[in-house]
Write a protein that binds this DNA or RNA. Structure first.
Lengths: 205, 205
DNA sequence: GTCTATAGACTGATAGAC
DNA sequence: GTCTATCAGTCTATAGAC
């Protein structure tokens, strides 16, 4: 397991970082399953096999842990799937991206639960989720605009683009929720069905 | 206000019922804003100006109160909007129905938060929400099938119908969430935009 | 029908031993 | 870096007075 050269001097430092990542992973599952208010530090600590005070030591507070969890989630979803893709191809990839969530139910539970909970302005993650959605809409709008510029689809006004990317986002969120509630739901087929029709509609004007 | 004939004998009974309805209404707001785990009986009782023990007396337990809230929400949304409409007309009404939610933010918050929270099988409302979604999908599928039978749209297989109504539901849920996160969102325009395109796609095969 | 009082468990957080 | 011990606060629920 240990690197032969550096394990003795930096061992403790390494284990600290790894422990931190492990704690974040477990917190993701618990927050995803019980929400923020319903997921206690003690529950998370128990599943990790550490004391609940350790969590405070690492993250300062419960809200600090939540922030770390959200940043990790952001990092995974961004780096994960959609780099090096742009324009219409970006949208064509979305069914595949959603289908990949089926292997990580906890992540999708976290996202769905936090987005709903954080719609209340008093929730600790409210600002984070708001910024996250805005950024996502801007990204999607950029790719659709790019498709327009490349003549892959017919021209669209800015308000039209705004509505289109909102609908795409809504379909992804809504179908994800339906899959959580009923795993029989064919995620890929539903998203694919919508995207294909949307692209045809964008092209045919 | 009181019925002249019976008010004296049944007065206390009446106030009990009215109080119960008032408590349910306040609980809807609190659960909608803080979720189930985050919305305490004390907070609800405080906003109602009664003791928290009163809530237990009325509803037996916190979960009993949640059940009462969900049933009331179900009753309102069902009776409210879409009776006496069927087939394609049912879908054409949806943008208007969603737009009407803008006057009752609390109800939409409740629905969104509970649906997400209850995706966890351990949540008290899990079964209720599952049945609610199934029933809704069946209703939508029935109206789409009716449109097919009336030759308002081209024939669709059963799996196709299933996917179509899932996408419609997803759009409604997803756009609702976006409006909660950003009240600038044009609910009506987004839903209307999707429904119109969907109907055109259903017709043109 | 609503109240006070209280039980008993759980919460997030702090201090200090090792 | 992780632990135990403990804090004050909050939770749901019960019992009984009025």
């Amino acid at each position: 397991m240990p690197d032969s050269a550096q394990s003795k001097k930096r061992g403790p430092y390494r284990t600290g970082i790894r422990r931190r990542e492990q704690l974040i992973g477990i917190a993701m599952d618990v927050f995803g399953e019980h929400g923020y208010a319903g997921g206690s530090l003690r529950t998370i600590a128990e599943q990790a096999g550490v004391n609940h005070a350790t969590l405070i030591q690492h993250f300062g507070s419960k809200e600090g842990l939540l922030t770390a969890v959200l940043e990790e989630w952001d990092r995974r979803t961004v780096e994960n799937s959609l780099a090096h893709v742009s324009g219409l191809e970006y949208f064509r990839r979305l069914p595949e991206v959603m289908a990949s969530h089926q292997d990580q139910r906890g992540l999708l539970e976290l996202f769905t639960t936090m987005a709903a909970e954080a719609s209340s302005p008093t929730h600790p993650a409210h600002g984070f989720i708001q910024r996250r959605y805005t950024r996502n809409l801007v990204t999607l709008a950029g790719h659709l605009q790019q498709a327009v510029d490349a003549n892959d689809v017919a021209p669209l006004t800015q308000p039209q683009i705004d509505i289109e990317v909102r609908i795409v986002t809504a379909v992804l969120d809504g179908i994800g929720l339906q899959w959580l509630l009923d795993p029989e739901t064919d995620l890929r087929a539903a998203v694919s069905s919508y995207i294909e029709r949307a692209i045809i509609a964008w092209q045919g004007r």
